[in-house]
C-alpha cells in the first residue's frame, strides 16, 4: 500500500502563491467576499504563512506554503464524533462532506490550522458545471481542507489498473505541485524507496512541523535555515 506524502523545498519556493490559487481553482474552493475575507474567513486549502523576523536590516521573511499535513496520527480525525474525517489506508486524511455535522471539533483539534469551514453557502452559478467537475462542491456548514487532490489519485489509479501496472513515481501529481513555477513541491509515495519524495525526505535539510507532537505529518519541508 503506497503512502502519499509531499515535500516542499523552501529553498526553491519563492512564496509566489501560485500553489494557493492552483489549489483553489482545482478544488472549487469558494472565494470569500471582502468583509468575510477580512474577518478571517478566506478559504485556502493551501495557505501561505508569512512571517518577518529579525531586526532591520537583517530582516528575514519566511513564506511557507501550508496544505493539510495529512498526519499519520491525525488529531483531527480522532475527535470527529461522526467519522466525517478519517485517515484512509493510503495515508490520505479525507473529509466526507455529506456526513459532517459542522461541529468544527476537528478544526479546533488540528494543531496546524489546516481546515476551513463553510460559514455560508458558497456562491456558484446554478447548475453550471464550470469549475473542476471532478471535485464535488461543498455546502454550508461543513468543514473542508486539502485532500492531496485525491480525485487525481482516483483517475491515476484507474489508468494504472487499466494498463495493469503500478502507479509510477510522479504520475499522481496534485495541482499545487503541478503549477509551482519553482518546482518546489514534490509529491509521491514515501514508502517507495525509489521515489523522489522518499529521497528528499531523507535530506539533511528536512523539517516537519509539530514533530514534537507525534502526529507524524506527511508534509516535509526542506530548508537550509535551521529553525523554521
Amino acid at each position: 500500500m503506497p503512502k502519499w506524502a509531499m515535500v516542499i523545498d523552501l529553498d526553491k519556493c519563492t512564496g509566489c502563491d501560485a500553489c494557493a490559487v492552483a489549489c483553489k481553482m482545482e478544488n472549487n474552493v469558494p472565494i470569500a467576499d471582502p468583509a468575510e475575507a477580512q474577518s478571517g474567513r478566506a478559504m485556502f486549502w493551501m495557505d501561505m504563512m508569512t512571517t518577518t523576523e529579525g531586526a532591520f536590516p537583517n530582516t528575514v521573511t519566511k513564506r511557507v506554503p501550508k496544505p493539510c499535513f495529512h498526519c499519520d496520527d491525525p488529531p483531527c480525525t480522532l475527535v470527529c464524533p461522526v467519522g466525517a474525517t478519517y485517515r484512509n489506508p493510503e495515508g490520505l486524511v479525507a473529509q466526507i462532506y455529506h456526513r459532517c455535522i459542522g461541529c468544527r471539533y476537528c478544526m479546533a483539534a488540528c494543531p496546524f490550522t489546516a481546515k476551513v469551514y463553510n460559514w455560508y453557502d458558497p456562491k456558484w452559478i446554478d447548475g453550471a458545471e464550470v469549475g473542476n467537475p471532478d471535485v464535488s462542491r461543498r455546502m454550508v456548514g461543513v468543514v473542508e481542507k486539502c485532500s492531496f487532490c485525491s480525485h487525481r489519485l482516483m483517475s491515476v489509479k484507474e489508468t494504472a489498473h487499466r494498463e495493469d501496472r503500478p502507479i509510477m513515481d510522479g504520475e499522481y501529481v496534485p495541482a499545487c505541485a503541478e503549477s509551482c513555477p519553482a518546482e518546489a513541491i514534490v509529491f509521491g509515495d514515501i514508502e517507495n524507496e525509489e521515489s523522489r519524495v522518499y529521497r528528499l525526505s531523507r535530506s539533511y535539510r528536512v523539517m516537519r512541523y509539530g514533530e514534537d507532537l507525534g502526529v507524524k505529518p506527511k508534509v516535509y519541508y526542506l530548508s537550509r535555515r535551521t529553525e523554521t
Binding site: C16, D17, A18, A20, V21, A22, M25, E26, E129, V130, G131, N132, P133, A175, E178, S179, C180, P181, A182, E183
Partner: peptide, 25 residues
C-alpha cells in the same frame, strides 16, 4: 468544449509548467 481549468504547459520554454497566481485564475 467548455474550459474548466488551466495549468502551465510543461513543454513551453518560458514557464515549463509553472504559472503565476493570476494566470491560474
Amino acid at each position: 468544449d467548455i474550459p474548466v481549468s488551466v495549468k502551465g504547459n510543461p513543454v513551453y520554454p518560458i514557464n515549463r509548467g509553472g504559472m503565476c497566481p493570476l494566470g491560474l485564475n
